[in-house]
Amino acid sequence: MLELRLVQGSLLKKVLESIKELVTDANFDCSSTGFSLQAMDSSHVALVALLLRSEGFEHYRCDRNMSMGMNLNNMAKMLKCAGNDDIITIKADDGGDTVTFMFESPTQDKISDFEMKLMDIDSEHLGIPEAEYHAIVKMPSSEFARICRDLSSIGDTVVISVTKEGVKFSTKGDIGSANIVCRQNTSVDKPEEATVIDMNEPVSLTFALRYMNSFTKATPLSNTVSISLSNELPVVVEYKIAEMGYVRFYLAPKIEE
């Protein structure tokens, strides 16, 4: 038996909106730690890792570890039917082939339940080693989204370079080229507006903008984003989910042939 009650149901709606473009079907894993997911895109270039810790739920009952295969588009369709202020409860029976999403309006005067069929998915879990990154950039998530959107109108790839001068996003295309440099800026009024660059070694990596733009669908989840870079390693783009966990996107770099 599984029963997870999330008072801030809008978080789950936002999570689905942030990952459904990248991944079609995925297994949600439920354990005493929390509700999690790890899935790659169909080309095995990008990966999403989601964690919603059990402590973040108002009620969290998971009698035994469960893996539930869901089509994310269908799940998003159902969650769209929940109001932004609704409380969402996820329910499933052990060994069942359905999951139920229950939505309660804040005043308890409307209660809906939506039952969705589960599916069998061959999961391909990757072991992601803990890594020391050469550079970690923390910046406003809206700024990062803006940069990715702007650069994708010029080129297909972005070179992200971190030096002690700042972080540079560059692209080239048929019509020309563009460079956007963000300097460390910690003297802003609000901490979420700061750009903080934590660099051990200079790093420069090339990535497909198409994926970066897809990751920025998670912008509504967090005011800030952190971008962890190491030469010759996939980048990690992380959106923290307040008091609950995170959505992390991993993207393999483009490498010179």
């Binding site: 095995h44 270039v45 879990h125 990757l126 090339t206 770099p253 490498i255």
Partner: peptide, 14 residues
């Protein structure tokens, strides 16, 4: 030209 690498080049299958 740059070639798109795959995640499997960096991470191992569990």
């Amino acid at each position: 030209a740059n070639k798109q690498s795959k995640l499997s080049a960096f991470f191992t299958m569990k």
